[in-house]
Amino acid sequence: MKSKLKMRERAVAIGFVAPLFIGFAIFTVIPFIVAVIYSLVDYMALQGKISPISFDVYISLFRGDLVAVGFGQAIINTLIIMLSIPINLLLGLLFSALITQKNFRGGTFFRVVLYLPAVTGAVAITLVWKLMFNETQGIVNIVLKNLGIIEENINWLGISSGSTYPRAVLILKNVWGGIGGVIILYVAGILNIPGTYYEAADIDGASKVRQFISITVPMLTPITFYHLIVSIIGGLQAFMDTQLLANTSATQTIVYFIYDHGINNYRYGYASAASVVLATAVMIITVIQFKLSDKWVYAE
């Protein structure tokens, strides 16, 4: 009787988790396997061409003539644009600490205002930023010129003024757009830190800055860890900004490279190889983050 019951329980349990696993297999495992195969045989869909199995595509990804404007550049661009992640965390933490102070007025107002970008359509935001940073009629150039900071208009979103400007605008936009989400979680985390910790620190004569460094920051490390994981995975997969805001060689990301090769040029082998490299990088970085988390993430 007992074993029958167990088997029935097991069957029910499998029934509940089966949809998830089936979906995972169909939409993640199989495409990943197919991508690996495509990359190994340098598959070209339009021509129906398959080469003998080799790592040639992976090698040419890094050694081909087009590396300067290809995969290597895409990796550099992606990593530079991801600089918004530490800035976001740092500013988010500071803002959160500020607006949760007892004597700070308007905390709710600032939380709402700072969270607004997170609930606004990403395409709409990007288009507004495109107008703001337009070279001849954008408000940014107009203001900077009126203030005497610049003499000539800057082509922020084109590469004609150098690669720094479009990348800087993308970083700025990502900070502005992402800080709301960071603040919401940090504020929730700060409000959950028991007040007794701060009272004890007060009694010991710790300053507010010391309390922030020694209590608030460590207690928020689980949230910081969550943000890091999510932001790095999202950052490595960035795509839309390149398409909409600043489509230059200085801002084309890894995913754009994959799209360009796979969709525009039917080079499924190249696109798949880049995808496999990206997926592997994401996995390795995430595993390292989890391994290192033992050393710095607070756990009760």
Partner: peptide, 20 residues
């Protein structure tokens, strides 16, 4: 499992377009 699936997919020619 991944290796086996890969060999299976490769050998049956699924997910490949045919050359005209």
């Amino acid at each position: 499992v991944i290796l086996f699936s890969g060999v299976l997919l490769l050998s049956c020619g699924c997910f490949f377009t045919q050359k005209e």
